[in-house]
Design a protein around this nucleic acid. Sequence first.
DNA 1: TGACAAATAGTATTTATTACTATATAGTAA
DNA 2: TTACTATATAGTAATAAATACTATTTGTCA
Lengths: 150, 150
Amino acid sequence: MIQMRNTFLYCKEKLEKNNFRITPQRLSVFCCLVDSKSHPTAEIIYRRVRKEFPNISFDTVNRTLLSLLEKGLIKIVEGGHGARHFDANLKQHYHFRCLKCKKIIDFECIEYDNINIPEDISDKFHVLRKKIILEGVCLECLEKEKNKDN
Amino acid sequence: MIQMRNTFLYCKEKLEKNNFRITPQRLSVFCCLVDSKSHPTAEIIYRRVRKEFPNISFDTVNRTLLSLLEKGLIKIVEGGHGARHFDANLKQHYHFRCLKCKKIIDFECIEYDNINIPEDISDKFHVLRKKIILEGVCLECLEKEKNKDN
DNA sequence: TGACAAATAGTATTTATTACTATATAGTAA
DNA sequence: TTACTATATAGTAATAAATACTATTTGTCA
Protein backbone atom coordinates (compact mmCIF):
# COMPACT_ATOMS: atom_id res chain seq x y z
CA MET A 1 0.00 0.00 0.00
CA ILE A 2 1.33 3.47 -0.88
CA GLN A 3 3.11 4.45 2.36
CA MET A 4 0.26 5.92 4.33
CA ARG A 5 0.50 8.60 6.95
CA ASN A 6 -1.66 6.69 9.26
CA THR A 7 -3.89 3.67 9.02
CA PHE A 8 -6.68 5.33 10.93
CA LEU A 9 -6.80 8.41 8.71
CA TYR A 10 -6.51 6.31 5.57
CA CYS A 11 -9.43 4.15 6.61
CA LYS A 12 -11.59 7.02 7.77
CA GLU A 13 -11.04 8.87 4.53
CA LYS A 14 -11.83 5.82 2.42
CA LEU A 15 -14.99 5.15 4.37
CA GLU A 16 -16.15 8.73 4.07
CA LYS A 17 -15.48 8.82 0.35
CA ASN A 18 -17.62 5.74 -0.03
CA ASN A 19 -20.51 7.04 2.02
CA PHE A 20 -20.02 4.68 4.91
CA ARG A 21 -21.08 5.77 8.32
CA ILE A 22 -18.06 6.10 10.55
CA THR A 23 -18.61 3.68 13.39
CA PRO A 24 -15.86 2.64 15.79
CA GLN A 25 -16.47 -1.03 14.95
CA ARG A 26 -16.22 -0.49 11.24
CA LEU A 27 -13.08 1.58 11.59
CA SER A 28 -11.56 -1.04 13.82
CA VAL A 29 -12.28 -3.88 11.41
CA PHE A 30 -10.95 -1.93 8.45
CA CYS A 31 -7.82 -0.75 10.29
CA CYS A 32 -7.17 -4.25 11.54
CA LEU A 33 -7.11 -5.59 8.01
CA VAL A 34 -5.06 -2.70 6.63
CA ASP A 35 -2.46 -3.18 9.35
CA SER A 36 -2.28 -6.89 8.78
CA LYS A 37 0.62 -8.03 6.66
CA SER A 38 -0.88 -11.47 6.09
CA HIS A 39 -4.32 -12.36 4.79
CA PRO A 40 -6.58 -12.90 7.77
CA THR A 41 -9.94 -14.63 7.66
CA ALA A 42 -13.07 -13.02 9.06
CA GLU A 43 -12.65 -15.24 12.10
CA ILE A 44 -9.11 -14.00 12.75
CA ILE A 45 -10.11 -10.37 12.34
CA TYR A 46 -13.04 -11.01 14.67
CA ARG A 47 -10.69 -12.32 17.36
CA ARG A 48 -8.35 -9.35 16.98
CA VAL A 49 -11.03 -6.70 17.03
CA ARG A 50 -12.56 -8.29 20.11
CA LYS A 51 -9.55 -7.11 22.09
CA GLU A 52 -10.74 -3.58 21.47
CA PHE A 53 -14.47 -4.31 21.36
CA PRO A 54 -15.03 -7.35 23.56
CA ASN A 55 -18.62 -7.77 22.52
CA ILE A 56 -18.55 -7.04 18.84
CA SER A 57 -20.42 -9.79 17.02
CA PHE A 58 -18.99 -11.98 14.29
CA ASP A 59 -21.81 -10.86 12.03
CA THR A 60 -20.71 -7.26 12.30
CA VAL A 61 -17.15 -8.14 11.36
CA ASN A 62 -18.21 -10.29 8.45
CA ARG A 63 -20.83 -7.84 7.21
CA THR A 64 -18.33 -5.02 7.40
CA LEU A 65 -15.80 -7.00 5.38
CA LEU A 66 -18.41 -7.85 2.76
CA SER A 67 -19.50 -4.25 2.41
CA LEU A 68 -15.90 -3.04 2.12
CA LEU A 69 -15.41 -5.71 -0.52
CA GLU A 70 -18.44 -4.55 -2.44
CA LYS A 71 -17.06 -1.03 -2.63
CA GLY A 72 -13.67 -2.29 -3.70
CA LEU A 73 -11.86 -1.11 -0.58
CA ILE A 74 -10.58 -4.59 0.12
CA LYS A 75 -10.20 -7.82 -1.84
CA ILE A 76 -10.61 -11.53 -1.29
CA VAL A 77 -7.59 -13.77 -1.53
CA GLU A 78 -8.75 -17.25 -2.27
CA GLY A 79 -6.91 -19.81 -0.23
CA GLY A 80 -8.26 -22.74 -2.19
CA HIS A 81 -9.46 -24.33 1.04
CA GLY A 82 -11.24 -23.39 4.23
CA ALA A 83 -12.39 -19.91 5.04
CA ARG A 84 -11.76 -17.03 2.70
CA HIS A 85 -8.98 -14.58 3.33
CA PHE A 86 -9.15 -10.82 3.04
CA ASP A 87 -6.58 -8.36 1.80
CA ALA A 88 -6.50 -4.57 1.98
CA ASN A 89 -3.55 -4.26 -0.38
CA LEU A 90 -5.10 -2.72 -3.45
CA LYS A 91 -1.91 -2.53 -5.45
CA GLN A 92 -1.92 -5.03 -8.32
CA HIS A 93 -0.18 -8.11 -7.04
CA TYR A 94 -0.29 -11.87 -7.30
CA HIS A 95 -0.08 -14.86 -5.01
CA PHE A 96 1.91 -17.97 -4.46
CA ARG A 97 0.16 -20.71 -2.49
CA CYS A 98 1.96 -23.52 -0.74
CA LEU A 99 -0.09 -26.66 -1.24
CA LYS A 100 1.36 -28.20 1.93
CA CYS A 101 1.24 -25.55 4.62
CA LYS A 102 -1.35 -23.41 2.81
CA LYS A 103 0.58 -20.22 3.31
CA ILE A 104 -0.03 -17.43 0.82
CA ILE A 105 2.77 -15.16 -0.36
CA ASP A 106 2.26 -11.87 -2.20
CA PHE A 107 4.41 -10.84 -5.09
CA GLU A 108 4.45 -8.15 -7.73
CA CYS A 109 5.38 -8.74 -11.35
CA ILE A 110 5.43 -6.25 -14.19
CA GLU A 111 5.19 -9.02 -16.79
CA TYR A 112 1.94 -10.19 -15.23
CA ASP A 113 0.64 -6.63 -15.01
CA ASN A 114 0.95 -6.40 -18.76
CA ILE A 115 -0.54 -9.65 -20.01
CA ASN A 116 -3.26 -9.20 -22.57
CA ILE A 117 -6.87 -10.23 -22.45
CA PRO A 118 -7.50 -12.70 -25.29
CA GLU A 119 -9.77 -11.22 -27.94
CA ASP A 120 -12.30 -14.01 -27.81
CA ILE A 121 -12.75 -13.19 -24.14
CA SER A 122 -12.85 -9.41 -24.40
CA ASP A 123 -15.41 -9.81 -27.19
CA LYS A 124 -17.80 -11.72 -25.00
CA PHE A 125 -17.11 -10.38 -21.55
CA HIS A 126 -16.41 -7.16 -19.73
CA VAL A 127 -13.21 -8.03 -17.90
CA LEU A 128 -12.67 -6.07 -14.70
CA ARG A 129 -9.65 -7.75 -13.19
CA LYS A 130 -7.31 -10.67 -13.33
CA LYS A 131 -5.99 -13.04 -10.73
CA ILE A 132 -2.81 -15.03 -11.11
CA ILE A 133 -2.03 -17.71 -8.58
CA LEU A 134 1.09 -19.84 -8.58
CA GLU A 135 0.82 -23.07 -6.67
CA GLY A 136 3.53 -25.35 -5.39
CA VAL A 137 5.55 -26.14 -2.33
CA CYS A 138 7.57 -23.69 -0.27
CA LEU A 139 11.16 -24.43 0.73
CA GLU A 140 10.26 -25.03 4.36
CA CYS A 141 7.80 -27.74 3.36
CA LEU A 142 10.27 -29.25 0.89
CA GLU A 143 12.79 -29.52 3.74
CA LYS A 144 10.24 -31.18 5.98
CA GLU A 145 9.48 -33.70 3.25
CA LYS A 146 13.16 -34.54 2.87
CA ASN A 147 13.63 -35.07 6.59
CA LYS A 148 10.63 -37.39 6.68
CA ASP A 149 12.03 -39.58 3.91
CA ASN A 150 15.35 -40.09 5.66
CA MET B 1 -9.41 -33.42 -23.35
CA ILE B 2 -7.53 -35.22 -26.11
CA GLN B 3 -10.40 -36.82 -28.03
CA MET B 4 -10.83 -40.05 -26.11
CA ARG B 5 -12.04 -43.33 -27.46
CA ASN B 6 -14.37 -43.79 -24.61
CA THR B 7 -14.88 -42.17 -21.28
CA PHE B 8 -15.19 -45.46 -19.46
CA LEU B 9 -11.95 -46.88 -20.84
CA TYR B 10 -10.13 -43.60 -20.25
CA CYS B 11 -11.23 -43.52 -16.64
CA LYS B 12 -10.53 -47.17 -15.97
CA GLU B 13 -7.06 -46.87 -17.42
CA LYS B 14 -6.28 -43.75 -15.41
CA LEU B 15 -7.49 -45.37 -12.21
CA GLU B 16 -5.44 -48.51 -12.80
CA LYS B 17 -2.31 -46.52 -13.57
CA ASN B 18 -2.74 -44.73 -10.28
CA ASN B 19 -3.28 -47.86 -8.20
CA PHE B 20 -6.90 -47.20 -7.50
CA ARG B 21 -9.20 -50.14 -6.91
CA ILE B 22 -11.76 -50.29 -9.65
CA THR B 23 -15.11 -49.94 -7.97
CA PRO B 24 -18.31 -49.20 -9.86
CA GLN B 25 -18.96 -46.15 -7.70
CA ARG B 26 -15.53 -44.70 -8.30
CA LEU B 27 -15.76 -45.28 -12.01
CA SER B 28 -19.18 -43.71 -12.11
CA VAL B 29 -18.07 -40.59 -10.26
CA PHE B 30 -14.99 -40.18 -12.44
CA CYS B 31 -16.88 -40.81 -15.70
CA CYS B 32 -19.59 -38.40 -14.64
CA LEU B 33 -17.05 -35.63 -14.20
CA VAL B 34 -15.15 -36.45 -17.39
CA ASP B 35 -18.37 -36.38 -19.40
CA SER B 36 -19.45 -33.10 -17.89
CA LYS B 37 -18.78 -30.06 -20.01
CA SER B 38 -19.33 -27.66 -17.15
CA HIS B 39 -17.72 -27.64 -13.72
CA PRO B 40 -19.99 -29.52 -11.37
CA THR B 41 -19.79 -29.39 -7.59
CA ALA B 42 -19.59 -32.55 -5.49
CA GLU B 43 -23.28 -32.11 -4.75
CA ILE B 44 -24.19 -32.04 -8.45
CA ILE B 45 -22.08 -35.09 -9.21
CA TYR B 46 -23.68 -36.83 -6.24
CA ARG B 47 -27.15 -36.18 -7.63
CA ARG B 48 -26.17 -37.43 -11.09
CA VAL B 49 -24.45 -40.58 -9.89
CA ARG B 50 -27.44 -41.39 -7.69
CA LYS B 51 -29.41 -42.11 -10.84
CA GLU B 52 -27.11 -45.06 -11.41
CA PHE B 53 -26.41 -45.88 -7.75
CA PRO B 54 -29.45 -44.73 -5.81
CA ASN B 55 -27.86 -45.27 -2.44
CA ILE B 56 -24.35 -44.06 -2.97
CA SER B 57 -23.42 -41.73 -0.13
CA PHE B 58 -22.28 -38.17 -0.49
CA ASP B 59 -19.16 -39.05 1.44
CA THR B 60 -18.17 -41.59 -1.19
CA VAL B 61 -18.59 -39.07 -3.98
CA ASN B 62 -16.67 -36.41 -2.15
CA ARG B 63 -13.93 -38.72 -0.99
CA THR B 64 -13.55 -40.10 -4.49
CA LEU B 65 -13.21 -36.60 -5.92
CA LEU B 66 -10.62 -35.67 -3.31
CA SER B 67 -8.55 -38.77 -4.00
CA LEU B 68 -8.70 -38.18 -7.76
CA LEU B 69 -7.60 -34.64 -7.06
CA GLU B 70 -4.69 -35.79 -4.96
CA LYS B 71 -3.41 -37.95 -7.81
CA GLY B 72 -3.82 -35.13 -10.27
CA LEU B 73 -6.53 -36.86 -12.31
CA ILE B 74 -8.88 -33.95 -11.84
CA LYS B 75 -8.61 -30.32 -10.78
CA ILE B 76 -10.51 -27.84 -8.71
CA VAL B 77 -11.97 -24.77 -10.35
CA GLU B 78 -12.48 -22.16 -7.72
CA GLY B 79 -15.73 -20.35 -8.09
CA GLY B 80 -14.89 -17.66 -5.59
CA HIS B 81 -18.09 -18.42 -3.70
CA GLY B 82 -20.07 -21.39 -2.46
CA ALA B 83 -19.09 -24.97 -3.07
CA ARG B 84 -15.97 -25.85 -5.03
CA HIS B 85 -16.21 -26.99 -8.61
CA PHE B 86 -14.37 -29.88 -10.18
CA ASP B 87 -12.89 -30.24 -13.64
CA ALA B 88 -11.50 -33.29 -15.43
CA ASN B 89 -10.04 -31.25 -18.28
CA LEU B 90 -6.31 -31.61 -17.69
CA LYS B 91 -5.27 -29.55 -20.69
CA GLN B 92 -3.78 -26.24 -19.59
CA HIS B 93 -6.58 -23.71 -19.67
CA TYR B 94 -7.85 -20.67 -17.85
CA HIS B 95 -11.13 -19.30 -16.58
CA PHE B 96 -13.35 -16.30 -16.87
CA ARG B 97 -15.79 -15.78 -14.02
CA CYS B 98 -18.88 -13.66 -14.25
CA LEU B 99 -19.21 -11.78 -10.98
CA LYS B 100 -22.97 -11.44 -11.47
CA CYS B 101 -24.27 -14.85 -12.55
CA LYS B 102 -21.20 -16.72 -11.28
CA LYS B 103 -20.80 -18.69 -14.47
CA ILE B 104 -17.32 -19.98 -15.28
CA ILE B 105 -16.02 -20.10 -18.84
CA ASP B 106 -12.96 -22.04 -19.97
CA PHE B 107 -10.50 -20.63 -22.44
CA GLU B 108 -7.09 -21.48 -23.77
CA CYS B 109 -4.35 -18.96 -24.41
CA ILE B 110 -0.85 -19.55 -25.69
CA GLU B 111 0.39 -16.27 -24.25
CA TYR B 112 -0.68 -17.38 -20.79
CA ASP B 113 0.87 -20.81 -21.29
CA ASN B 114 4.21 -19.10 -21.76
CA ILE B 115 4.35 -16.56 -18.97
CA ASN B 116 7.44 -16.82 -16.82
CA ILE B 117 7.75 -17.53 -13.15
CA PRO B 118 9.42 -14.51 -11.51
CA GLU B 119 12.89 -15.36 -10.27
CA ASP B 120 12.27 -14.26 -6.72
CA ILE B 121 9.46 -16.81 -6.60
CA SER B 122 11.23 -19.71 -8.29
CA ASP B 123 14.15 -19.11 -5.92
CA LYS B 124 12.02 -19.56 -2.86
CA PHE B 125 9.34 -21.97 -4.00
CA HIS B 126 8.85 -25.06 -6.08
CA VAL B 127 6.11 -23.95 -8.46
CA LEU B 128 3.96 -26.78 -9.77
CA ARG B 129 1.24 -24.93 -11.63
CA LYS B 130 -0.37 -21.61 -12.33
CA LYS B 131 -3.95 -20.43 -12.33
CA ILE B 132 -5.16 -17.40 -14.23
CA ILE B 133 -8.66 -16.17 -13.61
CA LEU B 134 -10.25 -13.23 -15.37
CA GLU B 135 -13.19 -11.70 -13.59
CA GLY B 136 -15.86 -9.41 -14.88
CA VAL B 137 -19.38 -9.39 -16.23
CA CYS B 138 -20.70 -11.47 -19.11
CA LEU B 139 -22.73 -9.90 -21.92
CA GLU B 140 -25.97 -11.50 -20.75
CA CYS B 141 -25.57 -9.88 -17.34
CA LEU B 142 -24.59 -6.55 -18.88
CA GLU B 143 -27.80 -6.66 -20.92
CA LYS B 144 -29.88 -7.43 -17.85
CA GLU B 145 -28.29 -4.46 -16.05
CA LYS B 146 -29.16 -2.14 -18.93
CA ASN B 147 -32.76 -3.28 -19.04
CA LYS B 148 -33.10 -2.69 -15.32
CA ASP B 149 -31.88 0.89 -15.59
CA ASN B 150 -34.41 1.81 -18.27
C1' DT C 1 -11.88 -69.68 -3.16
C1' DG C 2 -10.54 -67.43 1.06
C1' DA C 3 -8.28 -63.64 3.43
C1' DC C 4 -7.75 -58.95 4.10
C1' DA C 5 -6.87 -54.26 3.00
C1' DA C 6 -9.50 -50.84 1.13
C1' DA C 7 -13.94 -48.80 -0.11
C1' DT C 8 -18.75 -47.89 0.86
C1' DA C 9 -23.37 -46.44 3.04
C1' DG C 10 -25.33 -44.15 6.39
C1' DT C 11 -24.88 -40.84 9.51
C1' DA C 12 -22.79 -37.42 12.54
C1' DT C 13 -19.80 -33.54 13.36
C1' DT C 14 -17.35 -29.59 12.38
C1' DT C 15 -16.58 -25.48 9.99
C1' DA C 16 -17.94 -21.60 7.18
C1' DT C 17 -21.35 -18.43 5.67
C1' DT C 18 -25.46 -15.99 5.82
C1' DA C 19 -29.75 -14.37 8.05
C1' DC C 20 -32.74 -12.45 11.65
C1' DT C 21 -34.46 -9.08 15.20
C1' DA C 22 -34.55 -6.02 18.96
C1' DT C 23 -31.69 -2.36 20.39
C1' DA C 24 -28.34 1.28 19.84
C1' DT C 25 -26.01 4.85 17.34
C1' DA C 26 -24.14 8.15 13.54
C1' DG C 27 -25.44 11.74 10.89
C1' DT C 28 -28.46 15.49 9.99
C1' DA C 29 -31.34 19.27 10.43
C1' DA C 30 -34.11 22.02 13.41
C1' DT D 1 -27.92 20.90 21.75
C1' DT D 2 -31.58 18.04 20.88
C1' DA D 3 -34.59 15.05 18.45
C1' DC D 4 -35.27 12.28 14.47
C1' DT D 5 -34.41 8.54 11.33
C1' DA D 6 -31.98 5.54 8.59
C1' DT D 7 -28.40 2.60 9.33
C1' DA D 8 -25.41 -0.32 12.12
C1' DT D 9 -24.81 -3.43 15.89
C1' DA D 10 -25.04 -7.45 19.33
C1' DG D 11 -26.65 -11.61 20.09
C1' DT D 12 -28.22 -15.51 18.22
C1' DA D 13 -30.11 -18.71 14.82
C1' DA D 14 -30.17 -21.02 10.50
C1' DT D 15 -28.18 -22.73 6.44
C1' DA D 16 -24.60 -24.62 3.66
C1' DA D 17 -20.27 -26.89 2.83
C1' DA D 18 -16.67 -29.89 4.15
C1' DT D 19 -14.96 -33.52 6.81
C1' DA D 20 -15.10 -37.52 9.97
C1' DC D 21 -16.68 -41.91 11.89
C1' DT D 22 -18.04 -46.93 12.04
C1' DA D 23 -20.08 -51.16 10.85
C1' DT D 24 -20.48 -53.57 6.70
C1' DT D 25 -19.29 -54.80 2.05
C1' DT D 26 -16.30 -55.59 -1.80
C1' DG D 27 -12.09 -55.69 -4.98
C1' DT D 28 -7.80 -57.85 -5.38
C1' DC D 29 -4.44 -61.18 -5.06
C1' DA D 30 -2.36 -65.36 -3.47
